[in-house]
Structure formats: C-alpha cells, structure tokens
Design a binder for these strands. Structure first.
Length: 218
DNA sequence: GACCAGGCACATC
DNA sequence: GATGTGCATGGT
C-alpha cells in the first residue's frame, strides 16, 4: 500500500482533511455524509450553525422534526435526524455533553460505544475515531473499496475489516498517514475511478497488475 | 430523465 | 450468511 500512498501524495499533495472546525462538527458530518455528497452535507451543517445549534446539548434538545428540517439538504433527512439524535444521546447522557471527555475515552471502548448506536456503522465510527478523536484508525469507504478493487489490490467482495487490514499492513500506524491516505483515496476515486472502464489518466494506472481483467460488477 | 453521492439497518430467503 | 431494499436531496 505504500506505493499507492506515495503515488497519490505526489500527484495530489496533502488534502487537509476533515473539512470541519471542531471535533463535534466532525461527528455531525460523519453521520450526515452517509451515502451523500459532501456539498449537500455542508449546507446542512451550515444551517445548523446558522441556527446557533452546533453544540451537543442544544441540538439534542431541539425538536426532532425541526432537526430534520435543518438537515434536509443532505438527504435521508428523517432517517439521519434520528441517527444524529441517537449519537447525541450518547454524548449528552453518557458524557454529560462533554465531547472532549468522550473523545478522550479509551479508543476500543469508544468504538464499541459508537457501534452500539443505531445508525453508526464501522465507517462512521472510524471516521469519528480518526478525525474527531485523533486515534490511528483507518477509515474504509466506498472509494477505498472501489479504487483498490479496480486496481487489483483487493477482491471486490472483500469485507470492511479485510480492506482495513490491507491498507494498514504496510503502513506506519500513524494518525496523519491514515488521515491523508483516506482523503487521497476519496480524491482519486472521485476524479478518476467513478465510471467504468478505468480512466487512463488515473495516477494509479501503471500500478495495475499485468493483464488483469476488470471485474464485471461495479 | 438517469445516474451518482465519503452507509446503515432491517426484511427475507 | 448472502442478497435486496428503503431512505432523499442536489449536481452532472
């Protein structure tokens, strides 16, 4: 994986992720960006901010239907209002609304607590661990999966943990490295690996194994 | 108008 | 355990 990381970093440069001002904003964004483009998520977060509610206790107290209206631009707004409230319940009721205290908790413990929240799966939990808590946890998303599968690094049917292990096996366990690599994979996926067949201008094109055919799915 | 976007839970076989 | 489906807005 080191070769992929090197190539992407040389090609695109540092990505300066996650695009948020505070750890709490990262947490909110991590839920809202599920299967959703970031442009739409930003509108939703801006509306929360403009309402003066980008803070856990106030947001949790807000009427669920009003919360849904605030986040409408990011899609699945009723569903996500519920999921966000489930996360806020953990912050407010288990940690007294103290985000810093929550994020300072033991990482394994925190990951379990996050995964126990209905609406938070492995990617959302790992995003919060890496980008809000600053823990060295690699985030696997659809781009990670697609880019690596299209370039013959993993199987198309590899599971979350398989991909995570492939990515971290040959890299230093380091927050900045994981941060950058995930962001770079999203960037290359977005710009070069969306449609089939593969794009010749992809910076990873010559890292392909020889003669490997493109899989039919995806 | 079709297709896509930084997932996840739940139903069904 | 695998596979399918609902959730929804906004850009290309």
């Amino acid at each position: 994986m080191h070769d992929v990381y090197r190539r992407l970093l040389d090609h695109f440069g540092p990505q300066a992720w996650w695009p948020a001002e505070t750890p709490f904003e990262v947490m909110v964004g991590a839920v809202l960006t599920q299967n959703t483009s970031w442009a739409n998520v930003r509108r939703a977060i801006d509306q929360i901010r403009e309402a003066g509610l980008l803070e856990p206790t106030a947001l949790y107290k807000l009427d669920p239907e009003e919360l849904a209206e605030l986040i409408r631009p990011c899609g699945y707004f009723r569903l996500k209002a519920g999921r966000l409230r489930n996360l806020l319940r953990l912050v407010v009721e288990e940690y007294g609304g103290d985000v810093e205290a929550m994020l300072a908790d033991d990482p394994d413990e925190l990951r379990r607590a996050l995964l126990a929240v209905n609406g938070i799966g492995p990617e959302t939990a790992d995003s919060i661990l890496l980008y809000a808590a600053g823990r060295p946890t690699f985030v696997v998303d659809t781009y990670t999966h697609r880019v690596l599968a299209r370039h013959g690094r993993i199987d198309f049917d590899a599971g979350y943990h398989d991909v995570q292990e492939y990515c971290t096996a040959s890299l230093e366990c380091d927050v900045q490295t994981y941060n950058e690599l995930h962001a770079l994979l999203v960037r290359v996926g977005h710009e070069h690996c969306r449609k089939r067949p593969r794009c010749a201008a992809c910076p990873l094109a010559d890292l392909l194994p020889d003669g490997r055919p493109l899989e039919p799915g995806e």
